[in-house]
Design a protein around this nucleic acid. Structure first.
Length: 211
DNA sequence: GACCAGGTCCTTG
DNA sequence: CAAGGACATGGT
């Protein structure tokens, strides 16, 4: 991890903060964050919100309810997010961990971050990004979330690293501050959607960091 | 109609 | 390990 990468990351964080200021994001309870984290995999956010509304209407928007629900009912509620069969199964798998292993979301809040992360990663369908989203937005842990947009924006800046290295970069550069972690991730998504239409863009403001 | 969306898993070489 | 395919609906 080079020093210039750290400087670029710091510059990007400041630049985005000045550009967007405060963004409200994922002001949901822990159960809904878990559900949303799985449903948003490779899927537009608007479709996820539709599915969450549907789950709420069906009284299926909690881990306890999902644990008890029929897979077919779950599938129907999350159909609009695509990959609906696999996502219904993933929701069931997460709910099984939450309810059977811990006895509920509240009990999980007492688990240290590293152990909780490892535990989430044992669930089929939960990878690094999904786990970190749940930790950051659901359990208020300072885990920096690296998604496709984060990779894209760093690529614009000329930083090419694996997701795990990008996560380390941000967690090294940023002060340990939950709100800052959340804001920065939200800023990156916002910037990428508005300014980097193409997956690989070399003409945006971030790209100018390459000199 | 083509292409893509806030990933992850499984299978091959 | 890296690469390729599968999973599937909805919006542009």
């Amino acid at each position: 991890m080079s020093g210039s990468s750290s400087i670029k990351v710091g510059t990007i964080v400041d630049l985005l903060a000045n550009r967007f200021g405060v963004i409200r994001w994922w002001a949901w309870d822990t159960d809904e964050v878990m559900i949303g984290a799985i449903l948003t995999q490779q899927t537009r956010w608007e479709n996820v919100e539709t599915a969450i509304s549907r789950l709420k209407a069906d009284r299926l928007a909690t881990m306890a309810a999902i644990h008890a629900a029929n897979v077919a009912d779950l599938e129907e509620a999350v159909r609009c997010t695509g990959f609906f069969r696999i996502k219904a199964r993933r929701l069931k798998a997460l709910a099984a961990l939450v309810m059977d292993t811990y006895g509920g979301v509240e009990q999980m809040a007492a688990i240290p971050t590293g152990k909780l992360r490892a535990s989430l990663l044992t669930v089929n369908g939960i990878g690094e990004e999904t786990a970190d989203s749940i930790l950051c937005y659901g359990f208020s842990r300072t885990c920096f979330v690296v998604d496709a947009y984060t990779d894209r924006i760093l690529h614009c800046a000329g930083v090419r690293e694996k997701p795990s290295a990008i996560k380390d970069l941000f967690e090294t550069v940023l002060p340990v501050d939950l709100i800052l972690y959340r804001q920065t991730h939200a800023h990156i998504v916002e910037y990428s959607k508005r300014c980097c239409q193409k997956k690989r863009c070399d003409e945006c403001q971030i790209a100018s960091l390459n000199g």
